[in-house]
C-alpha cells in the first residue's frame, strides 16, 4: 500500500543525498524543500545552501513499531539533531546501538539506504547520521 513513488523520491534527492536546502535571506529560516514564501517571515527571497554535515544529538528514540515499508530495518533509531549552523533536523541514526548514544554527542551525516520497495525493488537513499568518526 505504501510504495516508493519514484517521481516523489527523485524530486527531492538534492536534499536527501547532500543536504542541499534553502535559507531565507530575510529571517534565516532553513527550508529543506524549495519554498516559494518563507513560513516564518513570508519573505520570498532565498539562497541555496548546503547544510553542514556535522552536528550534535539533541534527542533520540528507537522505532520498535515501524510503518509499512520499514519493517526490514526495525528496530532503528530516529534522532533529533542540531547541525553546526544551528539548523535542527530529524534523521535516522546508523552504525550505532541505542546504548552507545548520549545527548550532545557529535554526529555526522552519511548516505544510506532508507528503504527498498518490496515490489518494485527501487532503492531509496537518504542522509542518516552516525556517531562522528
Amino acid at each position: 500500500m505504501f510504495r516508493i513513488k519514484v517521481p516523489r523520491y527523485w524530486r527531492h534527492k538534492d536534499f536527501r543525498y547532500r543536504l542541499n536546502a534553502w535559507k531565507c535571506n530575510h529571517c534565516g529560516e532553513t527550508h529543506f524543500f524549495q519554498p516559494l514564501i518563507c513560513r516564518k517571515c513570508r519573505s520570498r527571497d532565498f539562497s541555496r545552501v548546503t547544510l553542514p554535515e556535522s552536528g550534535k544529538l539533541l534527542a533520540y528514540t528507537v522505532v520498535r513499531s515501524p510503518p509499512e515499508g520499514f519493517e526490514a530495518q526495525s528496530p532503528y533509531i530516529i534522532g533529533f539533531i542540531e547541525l553546526d549552523d544551528g539548523t535542527r533536523i530529524l534523521g535516522q541514526l546508523t552504525d550505532c546501538y541505542p546504548e552507545e548514544l548520549k545527548q550532545g554527542m557529535k554526529v555526522e551525516a552519511t548516505l544510506r539506504k532508507i528503504r527498498e520497495d518490496q515490489e518494485d525493488k527501487i532503492i531509496a537513499y537518504c542522509y542518516k547520521f552516525r556517531p562522528a568518526i
Binding site: 524543500f33 530529524l90 534523521g91 528503504r115 531509496a124
Partner: peptide, 12 residues
C-alpha cells in the same frame, strides 16, 4: 516528504 520519508512514526 521529510518526516515520513525517514521512517519516523507518530509515536517516535
Amino acid at each position: 516528504e521529510y518526516v515520513g520519508f525517514i521512517g519516523a512514526t507518530f509515536y517516535s
